[in-house]
């Protein structure tokens, strides 16, 4: 079932096209990554889907309804990038108000607020004002508001931007855990995070759809690639020599200090190549941190 359907969508600000003839269909299921450089149109797209902005041309439907439709209340939820709660009221009061606006009774709303705050591991902040929370905690409260009720589709706009690694991990784990029950569309610049979290990638650039596909490696080039990160960069030269002598390795590319990409003869050779590589590393006493089959999402999208 498609959760988002966009046809020839144009959003124009004066002469600037934030979205340029965008057509896209996304189905319900595992998390979907929305990526692209700054100014690609990600936030504009989310804002249109939530009904905050109107399209200049084209048609958009979310869960079969027009954006902003009252039929989407409780079904579509969002964690807008820079939105902040009212500083004059406590978190609990505001979340309760949101839950009641979704049609929950007073007691149901209170229970649901407790539920979502405990999901984001902030059960004690209900009586606090938003301003008293750290940036990371505010992001988690914002995620909590998106989880109120049981939405079918949740749009997360830069959910981990500007927050510390422990908070990033909490949010990532939550999305991963909850994605069995609801569809998430996540926009982020953190490609490592999206790679771990999402199955589908939508890549926007200059308001246009550049590509859609699965996060898992699929091209022949990806299948014939190994990416390795050494424990330190002191063995870079030794590694380069060692790797290029392994049977089945066609070329060794140094990506950064301690990071290498090995391109193999054929995909079928991969398993023996990684086994041979690990054995050689052990013999040469070169410690490694990570060995990955295929190229990272970042390498595939931006080259390297």
């Amino acid at each position: 079932m498609s959760v988002i359907h966009i046809e020839n969508c144009v959003k124009q600000y004066g002469s600037v096209k934030a979205l340029d003839n965008l057509s896209l269909t996304l189905d319900a299921g595992p998390p979907i990554a929305l990526i692209g450089p700054n100014g690609a149109g990600k936030t504009t797209l989310f804002s249109i889907l939530c009904g905050y902005l109107r399209v200049t041309r084209g048609s958009v439907s979310v869960l079969g309804e027009a954006p902003g439709s009252q039929s989407l209340v409780g079904r579509l939820s969002s964690m807008p990038q820079d939105a902040r709660m009212d500083p004059h009221f406590t978190v609990g009061r505001q979340l309760t108000q949101y839950a009641r606006l979704q049609g929950l009774s007073r007691s149901e709303a209170k229970r649901d607020v407790e539920r979502v705050l405990s999901i984001v591991q902030l059960p004690d902040v209900a009586s606090m004002r938003p301003e008293a929370l750290s940036h990371g905690m505010r992001k988690r409260v914002s995620l909590a508001q998106a989880l109120l009720g049981n939405p079918e589709l949740i749009l997360l706009d830069e959910p981990t931007a500007g927050i510390d690694p422990p908070n990033v991990k909490i949010i990532r784990d939550l999305v991963s855990e909850l994605s069995a029950h609801m569809t998430f569309v996540v926009s982020s610049h953190n490609l490592d995070e999206l790679e771990r979290l999402c199955k589908t990638v939508v890549y926007l650039e200059n308001g246009q759809l550049k590509q859609t596909g699965t996060v898992a490696a699929s091209s022949a080039e990806d299948d014939a690639t190994l990416t390795i990160r050494l424990a330190s960069n002191t063995h870079d030269e030794a590694f380069e020599q060692l790797a290029s002598n392994i049977t089945g390795v066609e070329s060794v590319v140094r990506l950064a200090q301690g990071d290498f990409r090995l391109v193999c003869d054929t995909p079928a050779e991969l398993t023996p190549v990684d086994e041979r590589l690990l054995a050689a590393l052990r013999l040469a006493d070169i410690p490694y941190r990570q060995l990955v089959r295929g190229r990272s999402l970042e390498d595939r999208l931006y080259g390297g």
Partner: peptide
């Protein structure tokens, strides 16, 4: 941006 939370509901 508080309106964004409200107009979803």
């Amino acid at each position: 941006g508080t309106l964004r939370y409200l107009t979803l509901r």
